[in-house]
Design a protein around this nucleic acid. Structure first.
Length: 573
RNA sequence: GACUCUGUAGCUCAGCUGGUAGAGCAAUUGACUCUUAAUCAAUGGGUCGAGGGUUCGAUUCCCUCCGGGGUCACCA
């Protein structure tokens, strides 16, 4: 990058970097820095009466500096928080040479630098726990200014809030917005809790293919890719369900996977093209058992994260205390529309849609119509955790038929805050029924439903060898995190949410300018002046360009030797 | 994809009906040995997202494009 593209503050920091090197200070030292304490440890364990922590070694990022002549305060931030430091000239520079304080600490250190200190902990007159610094060392120089966020009495000033920058440059967001880190710590804690619970029960964590020849297990548009050596089309998985069930066939009796899935669909507050799902399959269980299991898991997570089962979400309070409400889909529809659809055929369902104002078209079968009614009229009403059970068979091609009604399946979804959180089945293990259902999906697909499933014949073959009765459950980890952290957007619970790539203005490579006989140093100047492409030079008058170049050189004090007017007109020919 | 709001200094934002831009913090220089949004004084910093149009003149009005937010559609 040429210096002309840098801001004033960046130039100053690069100059500081050079001055540090000139003073014999390596701005990026290689050696280990043996810190022995964190900010949080100091803040929570220091006792001024003993006193303890009299030989601390601490490393962190300099977040503020308050210089008062021969003494200074600053704040260092590590992973656990911020701690104030107190630096005096004569203590870090005991001899005659005061350079380390006057030059290095006061002038060459900037907000954002990573530094290490040695000293002892004390409490200032203002009551702030502080490290009294006796030694100071630069660990990494920051040459790009950080947004400076200030805070007093809980009020934040100049908060760094631009969503675009926060998501694109998450590292910045994490540095200056401490609450952001909390969300991701909770996310990890949540996953750890779940993993712990599954492991306690002896279930096995497994990994299954992300690149799949048949994107099965869910009806969604997949991302496609190509394998060169095999010369085949591959898909990024939309689900891992069929692979986990193959493992149940293979004799594992409890398997789970935290799975990144990919769906080539729209993006919004609750959808990211890649997202995380936890799926678990347990042999010899049914969906009733799985409801109990799911309740236990979610209650446990809520307690671990927040110490209580009840959590604020938006302007509501959601309580994850067991047991959750259970209601069948038909009852739910009756509750919110007044219609009993349990005996209705496709045409009767269309009438109902008409009457209650639910849009539909002719590609929709019975299952899709019912789902549409539920989605439009019921789902949003269930704020507290509610299991919706017994979905129509058409909507659930991988789910076992209901033990008491072949029109229905043994399926439940957990709805929280009006949105689906979990999906679970008594898994279909009848291979002949499974193939029929796949073929029915194919017919739907031919009818125009582009979300119907692909047929995975190897999966059917696996079932033919025999799969024990099994219950499986999938839960959206991103959405669970949103609930548990009261986040409104999926982007707030993903460290690096998908964004459109940043685009830089188009510009010609330097060679194109050099070909015209323009010296390299003037190419940079032309670019900076706005001539990003050689074609832009076409209609420029040589005299004007000559004047502009000289003027730019002078104004910006580039110190270049001005070109000769004749040369400039030669460039333009 | 549609509608709508939005893009001005490193950050947060002003900028009326068109006359090439302001503030606070940050930065630079100086003063200050217990400050904490430190304080005080001075100084510098901007192709006002990109391109085109109207105009004597555009950050401002119009069009196109590129980012981003929100709402809706899509997401069994």
């Amino acid at each position: 990058m040429s210096n002309m593209e840098l801001s004033e503050q960046e130039l100053i920091r690069r100059a500081s970097l050079q001055k540090l090197r000139d003073l014999g200070i390596n701005p990026y030292p290689a050696n280990e820095f043996k810190n022995n304490v964190t900010a949080n440890q100091i803040l929570t364990t220091f006792n001024s009466e003993i006193p303890n922590l009299q030989e601390v070694v601490f490393a962190g990022r300099l977040m503020s500096q308050r210089i008062m002549g021969k003494a200074s305060f600053g704040e260092l931030q590590d992973e656990t928080g911020r701690i104030q430091i107190y630096v005096t000239r004569d203590e870090i520079c005991p001899g005659e040479d005061k350079t380390l304080y006057n030059e290095v600490f006061k002038k060459l250190f900037d907000i954002g630098d990573i530094i290490g200190v040695k000293g002892y902990v004390f409490i200032t007159q203002m009551g702030e726990t502080t490290i009294h610094v006796k030694e100071l060392v630069l660990l990494s120089k920051s040459i790009r200014p950080l947004p400076v966020v200030k805070e007093k009495e809980g009020k934040t000033f100049d908060a760094f809030t631009d969503p675009e920058q926060r998501y694109r440059q998450r590292y910045l967001d994490l540095i200056v917005n401490p609450h952001v880190k909390e969300v991701f710590l909770k996310r990890t804690k949540m996953i750890n809790q779940m993993r712990e619970m599954f492991n306690e029960r002896g279930y096995i964590e497994v990994e299954t293919p992300i690149l799949q020849p048949i994107p099965g297990g869910a009806a969604a548009r997949p991302f496609m890719t190509h394998h060169n050596a095999l010369n085949i089309q591959l898909y990024l998985r939309v689900a891992n369900e069929l692979y986990l069930k193959r493992l149940i066939v293979g004799g594992f009796e409890g398997v789970y996977e935290f799975s990144k899935d990919f769906r080539n669909e729209g993006m919004d507050r609750t959808h990211n093209p890649e997202f995380t799902v936890m799926e678990i399959y347990v042999a010899y269980k049914d969906y009733n058992w799985m409801m109990d299991f799911t309740e236990e898991m979610i209650e446990r997570v809520a307690l671990a994260l927040n110490g209580k089962t009840s959590i604020p979400v938006g302007d509501k309070e959601i309580d994850f205390k067991r047991p959750f409400k259970r209601i069948t889909m038909f009852e739910a529809i009756r509750e919110y529309t007044g219609f009993d659809i349990s005996e209705m055929d496709e045409n009767a369902l269309r009438d109902v849609c008409q009457k209650i104002g639910v849009e539909f078209d002719n590609t929709m079968g019975k299952g899709k119509l019912i789902d549409e009614i539920f989605g439009e009229k019921c789902e949003g009403h269930y704020i507290q955790p509610t299991f919706i059970t017994d979905y129509p068979v058409e909507m659930s091609p991988l789910c076992k038929k209901h033990r008491s009604n072949p029109e229905l399946t043994e399926r439940f979804e957990l709805i929280v805050n009006g949105k689906e959180l979990c999906n679970a089945y008594s898994e279909l293990n009848d291979p002949i029924d499974q193939l029929d259902r796949f073929q029915e999906q194919l017919r739907l697909s031919e009818k125009g439903d582009n979300e119907a499933m692909f047929i995975d014949m190897d999966f059917v073959r696996a079932l033919e060898y025999g799969m024990p009765p099994t219950s499986g459950m999938g839960i959206g980890i991103d959405r669970l995190t949103m609930l548990m952290t009261n986040s409104v957007s999926i982007q707030d619970v993903l460290l690096f949410p998908q964004m459109k790539p940043e685009k830089r203005a188009e510009e010609d490579p330097a060679e194109k300018y050099l070909e015209l006989g323009i010296p390299a140093e003037w190419v940079e100047v032309l670019m900076k002046m706005g001539y990003k492409k050689v074609s832009q030079l076409k209609d420029v008058k040589p005299g004007k360009l000559f004047n502009d170049l000289c003027g730019f050189n002078k104004k910006n004090q580039l110190g270049l030797l001005n070109p000769v007017a004749n040369d400039v007109s030669n460039w333009l020919n």
